[in-house]
């Protein structure tokens, strides 16, 4: 089966100037049905088109590398999991393609997830529940670098701003390795298991953990994980 969605026939050839002016969209979501639905919606508009679809962060980066377009928006679901999750993808995209618009998309994402997406470099968040016209309008705005927030209640704006600052504080306090250790620790692994996972000595892990507790001003692992969770660094429970 082809990965490309069925395209509505267009008047002008794909390589023409008119085609290049259209807003190109890269659709990323772990669920094929969601990708297909979004592609139908986007391809129905005369001023935008789906350039590629991806079901994982790595596929998305590969697809992005192949695109030769100036105006591109990446529409990514926040439900990608594993070490290369949606937030990793957003950060990597932001570093590699600073000019691209990036919009996070989810179903009832909580303020922490939204602030994490923004912190990583997304230009906004659009809920899957919003009206299709509004949804498309947000993609256009994001392609111009404008911040978009559609779906979440406006009461969340303050909490989202707080979340962004909490994450910044967390990132400034901890080294990358310490954050990595904390993320694995949040899975409930013992120091020995963390050490095995990261390929270092158990002693190294206990040293890291001790240093993390000191920096966060907490006395133990649960408190450290709770702080990391409120900053969106680790996810406790499911994202969507």
């Amino acid at each position: 089966m082809s990965k490309q969605p069925a395209k509505r026939p267009r008047a002008e050839p794909p390589g023409s100037a008119a085609a290049k002016r259209r807003l190109g969209v890269l659709v990323v979501d772990p669920l094929a049905v969601v990708r297909a639905g979004l592609a139908l919606l986007i391809d129905d508009r005369p001023d935008m088109e789906v350039l590629a679809e991806a079901g994982s962060a790595d596929d998305a980066l590969e697809a992005m590398g192949r695109l030769r377009r100036t105006r591109v928006v990446v529409l990514t679901g926040l439900g990608l999991e594993g070490p290369h999750d949606s937030f990793w993808l957003i950060r990597t995209l932001r570093e590699l393609f600073p000019a691209a618009g990036i919009v996070g998309c989810g179903a009832n994402a909580d303020p922490t997830a939204i602030s994490r997406a923004l912190f990583m470099g997304a230009d906004g968040y659009v809920d899957k529940a919003v009206d299709p016209i509004e949804f498309l309008r947000c993609l256009r705005k994001a392609s111009e670098g404008e911040m978009v927030l559609a779906g979440p209640p406006m009461e969340w704006v303050g909490a989202i701003a707080d979340g962004i600052e909490r994450q910044r504080d967390m990132e400034l306090k901890l080294t990358e390795r310490e954050r990595e250790v904390l993320v694995v620790a949040a899975e409930g692994l013992t120091a020995r298991e963390i050490a095995e996972r990261l390929g270092v000595a158990e002693r190294t892990i206990t040293t890291h953990l001790g240093r993390i507790y000191g920096k966060l001003g907490v006395s133990g692992r649960i408190a450290a994980i709770r702080q990391a969770a409120s900053a969106g660094l680790v996810t406790v429970g499911s994202r969507e």
Partner: peptide, 28 residues
Amino acid sequence: GRVYSADEEREAVAELGRVARHVHDADG
């Protein structure tokens, strides 16, 4: 109730974008 006009909400969201970008840039 809660009273913020559409203009104010738009301004707040734009500011949220500036905060995020600022933090992101400064971080990088």
